[in-house]
Amino acid sequence: MEFIQFHPTGLYPLGILISEAARGEGAVLLNGPGERFMERYAPTIKDLAARDVVSRAILLEVRAGRGIAGKEYVHLDLSPVGEENIRDKLWEIASFARIYLGIDPVRQPIPVAPTCHYVMGGIPTDADGRVISDESGSVVAGIFAAGECACVFVHGANRLGCNSLLDLLVFGRRAGRAMRDEAPRVQTPASKADPVKAVGEDLADLHERRGQERIDTLRRRMQSLMMDHGSVFRTDAGLNVAIDGIRGLKEQFSRVAILDKGRTFNYELMEAVELRHQLDLCEVILTSALHRKESRGSHFREDFPARDDGAYLKHTLVFDRPSGPEVRYRDVSITRFQPEKRVY
């Protein structure tokens, strides 16, 4: 779960995705002084370098005071694409710039900054969507996962553009077929506890809370902690600060107030349920990142900037324990492509 992909070009400040198609068609990134800075970070491939490389480059420019007007963004200049191509091939991107910033991207550059985009990790599954429960790949009978919630281990530490279609079209289909074939004969162990009743009681308990903490306040703090310490750049010290912070927020969450006592379209209750899951997942992401003392794909540790295949050419598996998340590792199965040094 430590592998969270940041897309380099989110419309600033909303974070709306400005797809790679823009740079694919010839758009370039410019910093405050108007320099095509990707030439320095990736001399051969420049603006088309991998998402993690471009995201870090943008934030390093910002750190060095070379953002636009010293602020936290750079410019994506679409003028090399040409008016006709923008209209025909980048219609939606142009519409975002027009609607949200009042900018005509034919003539004006779009302000962009890295934005949280995709989670490579997730519920571990085999290639047919069957959820697995340990390092040896034991299948949990009758439970399947597909889509971004799942981790089929194909994206490694850094998904490539368009490959989320694999989750949808390939593994969604494979999981569906496996479910069709296996549903008639799946043997699920009889459970003594009634899980539906337990969830119902848990929801009722949450719904009745009358504490002092507000969901919105806790969520904003969670977002700041994750952006400051768990996003594009990570360090041991920062990750520890964030883990402590998230644990504090989990403790505060136990005193959350649910003011809407209604049962129809109760979004406050839904957001409370979401926030509780989000806080758990934050702890898992940060703990996985803390244990991986190397840099690989989307996970970049400033204190361990090199890749360390000897120690970490492994998948992280996290187990829920009463004392907190427990980190274990699973071997990577490498077939056709051996890991190589990434050179641009």
Binding site: D216, L259, Y267, E268
Partner: peptide, 11 residues
């Protein structure tokens, strides 16, 4: 509105 004033508003 929903987060700061009136959590009962649904949309």
């Amino acid at each position: 509105i929903r987060w700061e004033q009136d959590p009962t508003l649904s949309f």
